[in-house]
């Protein structure tokens, strides 16, 4: 379960995240959508312990990220929007390094790495340097590295960037399957069709505040607009009126 309480981040007087409150049950795929600059990445950075909130608290599976950062981070798999990769490491070396950060080692790890590389169709490139990977392959490696320690919570910022339809389908199925097994997925995305397809709950954030939240049905009611998520999103964030 993820609980955000009165979460606020102020940058030089500007409220990037304004008193955010969320409660996401275990095993839920949660969509976090909003226009550019709405505060999505800032929220995610605070949830993963990379950024200090100005106010409020974050609890991941009962662990406060500010009080018990190491324990909380141990159960999070983070896929950032602009990930960093060591270009001079091979895919296998990177996964082994990432696993090491989560205290994993031994023969079992080699099997896990091999399984993940197979799953993401990177086996043929496992020992090649990352610098020779395509954009999509790098994204698949990043997602694989976030899953290596079998996290209870996956926090992902724009998961489908650079993925081909096959890769995108794989990731969608993977998230659904993990959620069925109890993993909570917190996903920020601009791909509204993706959010509508896989998310059980969605929050629309604008100017740092949650302006609507719930299931697709709840959002329809709140927006007073029927139909796809794009129409609901535009109605709530003002795009429909201005457009």
């Amino acid at each position: 379960m993820i609980i955000l309480k009165n979460l606020t981040k102020i940058y030089r007087g500007i409220k990037a995240v304004d008193n955010l409150n969320l409660q996401i049950p275990q095993g839920t795929i949660f969509g976090f959508i909003g226009p550019n600059g709405a505060g999505k990445t800032t929220t995610i950075k605070m949830m993963t312990g990379v950024l200090r909130p100005t106010k409020g608290s974050i609890s991941i599976d009962g662990l406060d990220i500010a009080q018990e950062p190491s324990q909380a981070k141990r159960i999070i798999g983070f896929i950032p929007d602009r990930p960093f990769l060591y270009e001079k490491l091979s895919g296998t070396e990177f996964l082994r390094f990432k696993a090491g950060l989560y205290g994993m080692e031994g023969a079992r790890l080699d099997e896990d790495i091999s399984d993940l590389l197979n799953l993401f169709e990177l086996s043929d490139w496992a020992d090649e340097l990352i610098e020779s990977y395509s954009h999509g392959m790098k994204q698949r490696l990043i997602i694989a590295s976030a899953l290596i320690h079998k996290p209870k919570v996956i926090i992902v910022d724009e998961p489908m960037v650079a993925l081909d339809p096959r890769g995108a389908k794989l990731v969608k199925e993977l998230f659904k399957e993990r959620a069925r097994k109890g993993t909570t997925v917190f996903m920020s995305t601009h791909a509204l069709a993706l959010a509508q397809e896989v998310c059980q709950q969605i929050a629309i954030v604008d100017k740092g505040r949650i302006v609507a939240s719930g299931t697709s049905k709840d959002l329809e009611e709140q927006a007073g607009v029927m139909g796809d998520l794009e129409r609901i999103f535009l109605a709530i964030t003002g795009g429909l009126a201005s457009g």
Binding site: K45, T48, G49, V50, P69, S70, Q71, K73, R74, I76, F78, P80, P83, F84, Y86, K98, L101, Y102, G103
Partner: peptide, 14 residues
């Protein structure tokens, strides 16, 4: 450094 985000998001202590 660009890789700091990776480290700070990991369970490694400060």
């Amino acid at each position: 450094s660009q890789d700091l985000e990776l480290f700070h998001a990991s369970p490694a202590t400060l």
